[in-house]
Write a protein that binds this DNA or RNA. Structure first.
Length: 900
RNA sequence: GGGCUUUUAGCUCAGUUGGCUAGAGCGCAGCAUUCACAUUGCUGAGGUCACAGGUUCGAGCCCUGUAAAGCCCACCA
């Protein structure tokens, strides 16, 4: 195949992915289901020596599109997956799809409304079936998008959050909790959205600061302060602080509740803050969280005056049926008319909103299922304290422990039809008094069941989705009591830092409760992807970046490289198209590197008959430096390519690739993706292309070119899977996929020779810098280079000439002239006329001064007796050496100056 | 009120047990054009590491405090 002059990702990506998928390369190499080859009753998977690497995808919404956060998630998770696969581990990346209970329901309810219907026209089962069809119809987009991003997940194992095995597992856990007494049904105040008519867990509530009014209302002799006058019909008492001298005498007495004919007691409770408002507060146990608790302490009645659809109930006829807003106006008017509205003050207070529709949430008295989380949280804390899970970033562990320590009981009932039905049935037969009021039963497809002569009806509520998704690591790995799998616990859970509490905390609690083990060994939390100005992306701001647009424009790899760049764990960081452009450029660079090497390989095979290894002959005739330990026809284990290193640049690139590999290994272990990518950029671009390949235009070592390119392609593959595979296939040096390759072994090289190449680099750099600094333009073509009795230069004439682009290199024959190059400390001169050298004098003087400043600093360090006495020996020695070096350099520079 | 995080080049960020003469990408400036790649090459400018103290032979890094920005939790009648 021929390489085009630039890499066009669109031409290859989808074909490459399809080829991977049909070849089945994303499946774990060791089966996920138990096998018993010896028929000895043991699971043979555990006997195999393979290492297991498992990771599961936080399930994207089944009927949605991927957003930028998903893009980051895939870039992170798939890099890990591909890296561990290349390392030879049995790697399992389980994809998922979320039924997204509430989210999807909101979308569906909108379409219902558009068609002029409401949820109340249908039974729960009908609604469930309708949403199911709705989701199936819209489903699939996100799975295609995951493929486009290169996610190398095992598609056969895709887990949908409403799959049968998920529901089974959730029911099993629920039953266990029910039997263990962790589940209770309680009438409590819950956060309730009157628009969506469902309750939420505390964590789903969005608090916003808002302007409001604090009204003072006279209840006989006592003036109470309230922001919600309409709830006064539900008042059960007035509370004052027991220490508050103003109201001491009133405690125990009753006052008249305005607009009604009721008398309510004045009670003493710490809840009343003497500093706030009038210091007296009306207590409405059924419609305020604090008041609910006060009510419990004082055994006050809970009077519900607001219905679930947000209208007034159980109130005087005049107010009955009004919305809370209308009622507030009416009440205020009536109180004013009676002259008992005695004050009003503008305040800012925080108000609970529905995180989806923004409606103000109503605290509502409801019977719901709750999980008593105390023991679960305690177990989780114990495991965390024992460091069984490593966090990235580390600080989040403490944050999580603090959260778990203050966790309140968890409301798991939701009044929406789209979700997993709660498997509880309520007794409706009055006479069967011995039977329990509520029973657990898995037959949630039935509305009504019979047991022990009693009739039970199904609870119509569904589970909070976080309750089922807290089982995610368990259900995705198919863990069960009978067949524990080596893929559980997961190696890592990668997800957004914003759902640390909602999801990660619950997975840990549930994992420990169900399996006795933490569900994952490490947690990597990514922050939000912000726009290029560091602003949160939002539709209303119009700054949303669609990852698929970028993939289409620049390619999947470019997107992945771009989004990983400059990103670190747990931080909300800006993202701009620029970084993707830079990723695209790297892909193109790599493509052209491969193109060049392929062309060299092709030439070699054409030339092989006429003039075998001509370049090597040339090299040898110039006399290579004497070295030891140089690689001789090394057999590289991964690629089976034979190579030898025949000059400095070749040893050097082997060393640099080994260093790069080592660095990437370390970065992946520490989840430092950005650094890994950075290292690869530098190695591929600044070292491999700019130095090694340039030198190979002179010394052509085909076997080494092939081996080193293969190594670089493999190391980059986890981050840029498509371009590396496309090149791999295009080169066709092997029959395999790069996906299936093994992480390369160390390259053999001579370290002494490798280090000598640094001298060449210094020489070349100085020639370039000096030429640029000389007056005039296009100096590279103007001035020849001269050398005198310098074996390094002599041995590498062609290379230096090619890299510096000077027109000529000549021997001086013991008569120095021109401009001596001082930095590199070799007998090298630029053949520059005197008047030009004179113009260079200023920059030379400046150079001497700056080196002088460095020397002063070093000397000052050595003058400090404490430094010499206390600093480690090697550092003192290093300083001494540096002083010598700098001094010598200054001498050379001064000599250069006097020569002018 | 409790907790967490951030502050380093114009922008976005690295800087892993203190050894730094503080780095990268983008951007900027200059130079180059039969070259695998202009999605390029070469060169360069650009920093009081938020501030103030302290510890240390030595601080971007450790300690104390201050300021600014952001996030989370709780409370807010």
């Amino acid at each position: 195949m021929k390489f085009a002059s630039s890499y066009e990702p669109n031409l290859y990506e989808s074909d490459i992915y399809a080829a991977w998928e049909s070849a089945g390369v994303f499946k774990p190499s060791i089966p996920t289901v138990p096998i018993d080859n010896n028929s000895d009753g043991t699971d043979d998977r555990f006997e195999k020596n393979g290492q297991y690497y498992s990771i599961v995808m936080p399930p994207p919404n089944a009927n949605g599109n991927l957003h930028i956060g998903h893009g980051l998630t895939v870039a992170l998770e798939d890099s890990l997956t591909r890296y561990h696969r290349l390392r030879g581990e049995s790697t399992w990346y389980v994809p998922g799809a979320d039924h997204a209970g509430f989210e999807t329901w909101v979308v569906y309810e909108k379409t219902l409304e558009k068609d002029g219907h409401t949820r109340f026209e249908y039974s729960r089962d009908e609604l469930y079936a309708r949403v199911w069809d709705f989701v199936q119809m819209q489903r699939g987009n996100m799975e295609l998008q995951l493929r486009a991003l290169g996610a190398s997940c095992s598609w056969d194992d895709l887990t949908f959050t409403l799959d049968e095995n998920v529901i089974d597992r959730v029911y099993t856990t629920f039953e266990k909790m029910w039997n263990d007494g962790f589940i209770y049904r309680g009438e409590k105040l819950v956060n309730y959205c009157p628009k969506h008519q469902t309750a939420f867990a505390d964590i789903e509530v969005e608090h916003k600061d808002e302007k409001g009014t604090l009204w003072d209302i006279a209840y006989d002799d006592i003036v109470v302060s309230t922001t919600r006058p309409e709830t006064l019909f539900g008042d059960a008492a007035v509370a004052v602080n027991p220490e508050d001298a103003r109201y001491k005498d009133l405690i125990g007495k009753t006052v008249h509740l305005p607009l009604t004919d009721r008398e309510i007691p004045v009670i003493a409770d710490e809840h009343a803050d003497p500093e706030y408002g009038t210091g007296a507060v009306k207590i409405t146990p059924a419609h305020d969280f604090d008041d609910f608790e006060v009510g419990e302490r004082h055994n006050l009645p809970r009077l519900q005056v607001i219905s679930e659809d947000g209208h007034m109930i159980n109130v005087p006829e005049k107010y009955e049926g009004l919305t809370t807003e209308e009622c507030r106006k009416q009440v205020l008017k009536d109180l004013k008319d009676q002259g008992i509205l005695v004050g009003e003050k503008k305040i800012v207070h925080s108000v609970a909103h529905c995180y989806k529709c923004g409606t103000v949430l109503e605290p509502m008295l409801k019977e719901q299922w709750f999980i008593d989380v105390e023991k679960l949280a305690k177990m989780a804390i114990e495991h965390l304290e024992r460091d069984e899970i490593k966090f990235h970033p580390e600080s989040k562990k403490r944050v999580l422990i603090n959260y778990l320590g203050n966790l309140k009981d968890w409301n798991i009932s939701r009044q929406i039809p789209w979700g997993i039905a709660i498997p509880m049935f309520k007794k409706i037969t009055k006479e069967a008094t011995d039977e329990p009021d509520w029973i657990f039963d898995r037959r949630t497809n039935l509305k009504q069941i019979e047991r022990s002569g009693a009739t039970y009806v199904r609870d119509e509520d569904t589970f909070d989705t976080w309750f089922s998704s807290s089982h995610w690591p368990i259900v995705c790995t198919d863990w069960s009591e009978e067949n524990p799998t080596p893929y559980y616990p997961l190696n890592v859970m990668e997800t957004g830092a914003d759902i640390l509490f909602a999801w990660v905390a619950r997975m840990i609690m549930m994992g420990i409760y169900v399996t006795g083990e933490v569900p994952f060994k490490e947690v990597y939390l990514h922050g939000l992807v912000l726009d290029e100005h560091g602003q949160k992306m939002s539709k209303s701001k119009g700054n949303v970046i669609n990852p698929m647009d970028l993939v289409a424009k620049y390619g999947s790899d470019a997107f992945r490289l771009g989004i990983l760049r400059g990103r670190s764990a747990g931080m909300n960081q800006a993202f701009s198209e620029n970084s993707v452009v830079s990723g695209r450029n790297l892909c193109n660079k790599l493509w052209n590197i491969s193109r060049l090497i392929q062309s060299m390989v092709d030439e070699e095979s054409e030339d092989v008959h006429s003039r075998p290894s001509a370049t090597n002959e040339e090299q040898k005739s110039e006399g290579s430096p004497v070295t030891t330990g140089r690689a001789e026809r090394v057999e590289d284990e991964s690629s089976l390519t034979l190579y030898s290193t025949d000059n400095m640049g070749e040893d050097w690139i082997c060393r640099e690739i080994n260093e790069c590999k080592k660095q990437v290994e370390k970065d992946m272990k520490d989840y430092r993706f950005s650094e890994a990518v950075e290292t690869l950029y530098q190695t591929i671009w600044d070292k491999y292309a700019d130095w090694f390949l340039e030198s190979q235009k002179i010394y052509r070592n085909i076997p080494l070119l092939k081996t080193t390119l293969e190594h670089l392609l493999i190391i980059l593959h986890p981050f840029a899977p498509f371009v590396t595979e496309t090149i791999w296939q295009n080169l066709s040096w092997t029959d395999k996929f790069i996906v299936d390759e093994r992480w390369p072994e160390k390259l053999k090289f001579d370290p002494i020779t490798a280090e000598q190449f640094e001298n060449i680099r210094t020489i070349v750099s100085e020639v370039r810098t000096t030429l640029q600094a000389l007056p005039g333009t296009n100096n590279a073509n103007k001035y020849a280079l001269m050398y005198d009795k310098d074996s390094l230069v002599e041995d590498n004439l062609l290379l230096i000439k090619a890299l510096t682009k000077v027109p000529d290199i000549n021997a001086l024959g013991g008569k120095p002239r021109g401009l001596r190059l001082a930095l590199a400390n070799h007998e090298l001169y630029l053949d520059v006329p005197e008047q030009v050298v004179a113009a260079y004098k200023d920059s030379l003087t400046e150079k001497i001064l700056s080196v002088g400043r460095e020397l002063d600093a070093l000397n000052a360090r050595m003058m400090n007796p404490n430094y010499v006495a206390k600093a480690p020996e090697y550092l003192v020695k290093e300083t001494k050496d540096q002083i010598k070096e700098k001094q010598a350099l200054i001498d050379r520079l001064k000599l250069e100056l006097t020569l002018i």
